[in-house]
Amino acid sequence: MQTSPREQVHDLLKRTAVALKQADVPFALCGGYAAWVRGAPEPDHDADFLVPAGEAERAAKALADAGLQVVDPAEDWLLKVVRDDVFVDVIWRSCGRPAEPDLVDRAEVLPVLSVQMPVMAPTDIVVSKLMALDEHYCDFGRLLPVARAMREQVDWDLVAREVDGNDFAVAFLVLIDRLGIVPGVSRG
């Protein structure tokens, strides 16, 4: 029986998490799947994990030792776990900044597709998604359902402070304020 691409991503996501857990590599599910676990729509692409920058080499070794195919792409801030036509990103630098251990420390262990794993904190998820906005990628349409689904879980005052230097992120906060998704967020 043929499995769908989504089922393949689910399986690879679980295998990646289990390999990192078994090797005691600190990590957290991040990105679209972390938001999905917290109520946002399910992403239609890859899954992402965050490891502290100092753990990148150990994460790569743990994944390879678990029999997963690890690919070192041209980018110097991630590696890819690949199987067939799907992949999982393991990231150690986000928006140009090294991933600090406190991001992983704030993660909450939750069940994800029947596997207990650390999932990035809601406020950190939103901050990371907003800080990725720039003149090359500014898709508010993908972020609106995330903000709507997670609005009660997020410390929006902290988000506003954290993204204050990114005009694209600030514009998104104005938008969700004006749409009534998170009233008052753009006034800090």
Rank of each mutant, 00 (worst) to 15 (best):
T3Q: 15
P5K: 04
P5N: 08
V9H: 01
T16H: 06
T16Q: 05
V18K: 11
K21G: 09
Q22R: 15
Q22V: 05
Q22S: 12
V25W: 02
F27S: 09
L29W: 10
G32M: 09
A35L: 02
R38H: 14
A40V: 06
D46E: 12
F49G: 00
A53I: 03
R58I: 08
R58S: 02
A60M: 06
A60G: 11
A62P: 00
D65G: 13
A66G: 08
Q69W: 06
D72A: 08
D76L: 13
W77L: 08
L78W: 09
L78D: 02
K80Y: 06
V82Y: 10
R83E: 14
R83H: 14
D84G: 14
D84N: 14
D85Y: 10
D85T: 14
V88A: 09
W92E: 06
W92K: 05
S94C: 03
G96I: 11
A99I: 07
E100W: 11
D105T: 10
L110F: 03
P111W: 11
V112Y: 07
P118T: 07
V119R: 02
V119M: 05
M120P: 03
A121M: 09
P122M: 05
I125P: 00
V126T: 00
K129M: 11
L130W: 02
M131R: 14
M131G: 09
A132L: 07
A132K: 10
L133Q: 08
D134C: 13
F140L: 09
G141R: 10
R142F: 09
R142T: 09
L144I: 09
P145V: 05
P145S: 11
A149E: 01
R151T: 01
R151W: 04
Q153W: 00
D155L: 12
D155E: 08
W156K: 01
W156Y: 07
D157P: 08
D157F: 04
L158W: 10
G165A: 11
N166M: 10
D167K: 13
F168P: 06
F168H: 13
F168R: 00
V170P: 06
F172T: 01
I176R: 00
D177A: 01
D177V: 10
G184K: 03
G184A: 07
S186G: 08
G188V: 04
G188M: 07
